[in-house]
Design a protein around this nucleic acid. Structure first.
Lengths: 172, 172
DNA sequence: ACCTACATGTAACCCGTTACATGATTTG
DNA sequence: CAAATCATGTAACGGGTTACATGTAGGT
């Protein structure tokens, strides 16, 4: 699924500006989709031209004006239709796993740094997901994905903590 | 890390043709990196021009000729250097999780199909990783990544099996 | 007869990231 | 005083996928 449709999906959680949509990508969607401003803003332009979203400008005090987007009925239907024909494809690119694959060729201090960074990142993600889970009332689907994320990342974290000693300095 | 460097990495497991390198991406690397022929063949060309790999042509009976690539010393060193400066970035794009996020908008039969496909895919991946783990003698790094893959995918599979009933027809 | 595996390659196309430009306000 | 947050946007560039082109051999 491309950025345009993903933006429609993000708007199901309520009207939002491009900036706020980016935030949704970084929180709720963070463990399974990502998009940058350079993809989001042009996508929203296109969606507006196609009539799938509408836009109003909101003035704010001490903050720049916002362009707040809403789903139109066509937009809502378009997204739901897109879901039905979306294949459940997945692709993961992990340079962390790659580095671990070639651990024997990494300088010991680099290896330790990589392991620590990954541990911190996993803890951070689990924290974020846990806090999102508790703050807002979530749909069954959202709960499923949050719990799946927490489960999987926790399994990875525990694995890492158990196995990291395999790579401690004591040179074989 | 880009396809070129990944090809160098693949050649650490032994000399191989482009076709065989693709196979390594689909087995050993499958859970953390992927590349298509359209990326691999041009990458190997470039690596040869740069002197990072060498190439010999092997004639085969009842099979087309092969261009078998080997790492040169420079190539080996180039990859090891690249590892030291590679940041452990990760990006996952899962349309499966996306579909589950919006489960409430999916037609019930589509939802069931998606769940079944994902379960089958996870089982398949676990099987592949387990079989790779047992067949060849693996480096500590390779073992780590295989076990990590098995652990994480198993956690996901068990989660899915426990929770899939939440989405069974009994309409709320 | 058709599909899969083996084997290599090219070109069009898509899509997205990175970096830049701009600017106010708040926080450390 | 610098950095982060809020806010929108553009353009260059990179990178990879998909699809096509070609051909043999073996299995169902």
């Amino acid at each position: 699924m491309n950025t345009s449709n993903l933006c429609l999906g993000a708007l199901f959680m309520g009207d939002a500006s491009g900036y706020e949509i980016k935030h949704r990508f970084e929180t709720t969607f963070s463990h399974f989709q990502q998009a940058s401003f350079g993809a989001i803003y042009p996508a929203l332009d296109k969606l507006e031209r196609e009539g799938l979203v509408s836009c109003r400008i909101e003035a704010q005090e001490k903050r720049p004006d916002k362009k707040v987007f809403s789903l139109t009925d066509t937009g809502r239907q378009h997204f739901i239709d897109a879901l039905q024909t979306t294949e459940p494809k997945e692709s993961c690119r992990s340079d962390f796993i790659l580095l671990m694959f070639y651990a024997e060729f990494l300088q010991p201090d680099k290896l330790q740094e990589v392991l620590e960074k990954q541990e911190a990142k996993l803890q951070q993600t689990i924290e974020t997901l846990t806090s999102i889970r508790s703050t807002r009332t979530q749909s069954p689907g959202a709960l499923f994905t949050l719990d799946l994320g927490i489960t999987v990342q926790t399994a990875a974290l525990e694995f890492l903590q158990q196995r990291k000693s395999d790579f401690s300095d004591t040179d074989q």
